[in-house]
C-alpha cells in the first residue's frame, strides 16, 4: 500500500511537471486546444504497467491540480472532458488487444480533442464549433503518434522497475 502510494505520488508529481512544461511551450495555430499532451506519456505508462484504475485516478487528479495551478476553473472543465473521453477510448482499445501502443495513443489524442470541442460547443451553444474538428483531429493524430512512440520506448526500457513492485 505504501509502495503504491509512493508510486502514484511520484507519477502525479511528474505529470504536474509535464503540465507545467507544456504550459511554457507556446503553440499557436490560431485555434485553441492544440497541445502536445506530454502527460499522456505517463497515463499510457501507468495504463500499461499498473492498470486502468490507477491510470484513471492519475489523469483526473492531474487535470484538477494542474487546472488550479496553471489555468482556471473553465480550463478544468474543458480538459476534464477531453481526458475522460481519451481515457475511455484508450482503455477500450487496449482491452481489445487488437492494437499496439501507437494506435492506442493516437486514438486517445483524437478522443481528447473531440471531448474538448464537445464541451466548447455546449458552452457557447454553437454546433459550428465542430468546424475546428478536422484540424484538431489531425493535430491529435500527430501528437498521438509521437507520444505513443515515446511511451512505448520508455516502457520497453524501464518495464523491469514495475515488475519488482508489489
Amino acid at each position: 500500500m505504501a509502495r503504491k502510494t509512493a508510486f502514484m505520488g511520484v507519477f502525479l508529481a511528474l505529470a504536474l511537471i509535464l503540465s507545467y512544461i507544456e504550459s511554457l511551450i507556446p503553440i499557436n495555430f490560431g485555434i485553441p486546444g492544440i497541445k502536445l499532451g506530454l502527460t499522456n506519456i505517463l497515463i499510457l505508462i501507468v495504463l500499461y504497467e499498473k492498470g486502468a484504475k490507477e491510470a484513471l485516478i492519475l489523469s483526473v487528479v492531474r487535470v484538477v491540480l494542474a487546472g488550479f495551478m496553471f489555468s482556471n476553473l473553465f480550463g478544468i472543465l474543458y480538459s476534464l472532458a477531453g481526458c475522460l473521453l481519451s481515457f475511455l477510448v484508450m482503455f477500450i482499445m487496449k482491452k481489445s488487444d487488437l492494437f499496439r501502443i501507437i494506435a492506442v495513443s493516437t486514438a486517445g489524442g483524437v478522443a481528447h480533442n473531440l471531448g474538448q470541442i464537445a464541451v466548447a460547443a455546449v458552452v457557447v451553444e454553437n454546433i459550428n464549433m465542430f468546424i475546428y474538428f478536422p484540424v484538431l483531429m489531425i493535430s491529435g493524430i500527430i501528437t498521438g503518434i509521437v507520444i505513443g512512440l515515446l511511451a512505448g520506448e520508455i516502457i520497453i526500457r524501464t518495464g523491469k522497475i514495475f515488475d519488482t513492485e508489489g
Binding site: F99, I102, A103, G152
Partner: peptide, 8 residues
Amino acid sequence: NKIISKRD
C-alpha cells in the same frame, strides 16, 4: 515489435 504493428 512491441510498439507498432501493421494493424496500427
